[in-house]
């Protein structure tokens, strides 16, 4: 296996997530596609960490620590984002982005 294979798979996953954010109109699905994009970044970080072997024959753990922080921040982000979606649903009874236009120019 080569590094490029992992980077290509990670980029494809990012593209799928991006297409989902652009195509879907349900806020919860858009949020899930954002998670897909975060995970694509995690995959390329871990691949680089494994590729960059240190003199002691260990993977470069700096990349894995960054992935750990990304996962933690993503968990906090999901909690806050879903709370925002719930309060939005309470106020407007919808999760469809095209029904929420009060900030539209």
């Amino acid at each position: 296996m080569r590094l490029n294979d992992y980077l290509a798979v990670s980029g494809l996953l990012f593209a799928i997530g991006f297409a989902g954010v652009m195509l879907r109109r349900n806020i919860i699905i858009i949020f899930m596609c954002l998670e897909l994009m975060l995970n694509a970044a995690n995959l390329s970080l871990v691949a680089f960490s494994r590729f960059n072997v240190t003199a002691a024959g260990m993977p470069d753990y700096n990349g894995q620590i960054l992935v750990f922080f990304i996962i933690t921040v993503a968990a906090a982000e999901v909690a806050v984002g879903l709370a925002v979606i719930v309060s939005l649903y309470r106020a407007r009874r919808t999760t469809h982005v095209e029904d929420i236009t009060s900030m539209k120019f």
């Binding site: 296996m1 080569r2 980077l7 494809l12 593209a15 494994r50 072997v53």
Partner: peptide, 23 residues
């Protein structure tokens, strides 16, 4: 985005090496 990704990867020779072995 996908086209750019593959064109970048085509010009990234060090990514074509296999993963170095661990201890």
């Amino acid at each position: 985005f996908v086209c750019e990704l593959f064109s970048v990867l085509r010009h990234f020779p060090s990514g074509r090496r296999a993963f170095p072995p661990l201890a």
